[in-house]
Deep mutational scan, measured.
Amino acid sequence: KKIKIKIKVYNPETKEVLELEIEVSEEEAEELAKKLAEELEKKGYKIEEVEI
């Protein structure tokens, strides 16, 4: 079964909002969402919402 992940991120420095969407297997979904959120935060983005 495929799971659709939508991530909306906001960069306070540039006032930019990015929306990302990807489909992955159920097993990958939670781990991938967690890794993406961590990487984006390292780059200065503030995570507003992660929906699985």
Rank of each mutant, 00 (worst) to 15 (best):
L32V: 15
K34C: 07
E31T: 12
I22C: 11
V17R: 13
Y10W: 08
A37S: 13
Y45V: 11
K43V: 03
G44V: 00
I5D: 00
E16P: 02
K43P: 04
K43G: 05
E31N: 09
V9S: 15
K34P: 03
L40A: 02
K6I: 05
E21T: 10
S25L: 15
L40S: 00
E26N: 07
L18E: 03
K15I: 11
K4W: 10
L18N: 04
E13G: 05
E48G: 03
E16N: 06
E23M: 11
V50C: 08
I52N: 01
E39D: 05
K46E: 13
A37D: 01
E27K: 04
E38G: 04
E41I: 13
V24C: 13
E28C: 14
A33N: 01
E13Q: 06
E48L: 07
I7Y: 07
V9M: 14
Y45E: 13
E13S: 14
I7H: 00
G44C: 03
E41M: 10
K8W: 02
L36P: 00
A29F: 03
N11V: 07
V50S: 01
V17A: 09
E51I: 14
E30F: 13
V24G: 06
V24A: 09
E27H: 15
E49K: 06
K1Q: 04
I52W: 02
E27N: 09
V50F: 05
P12Y: 12
V17H: 15
K35D: 04
I52A: 02
E41T: 05
E31R: 08
K15G: 14
V9D: 00
E21N: 12
K2I: 09
I22T: 06
E28T: 07
E28F: 11
A33H: 03
E39N: 03
P12T: 08
K2V: 07
L36A: 02
K2M: 13
E23V: 14
E38T: 07
L40R: 00
Y10D: 02
E26I: 12
E39C: 10
A29D: 02
E16H: 13
V17I: 08
L40I: 02
E23I: 07
K46C: 15
K34F: 05
T14V: 06
I5M: 03
K1N: 12
K15V: 03
L40W: 13
K15L: 06
E21H: 12
E19I: 12
A33G: 05
E23Q: 10
E51C: 14
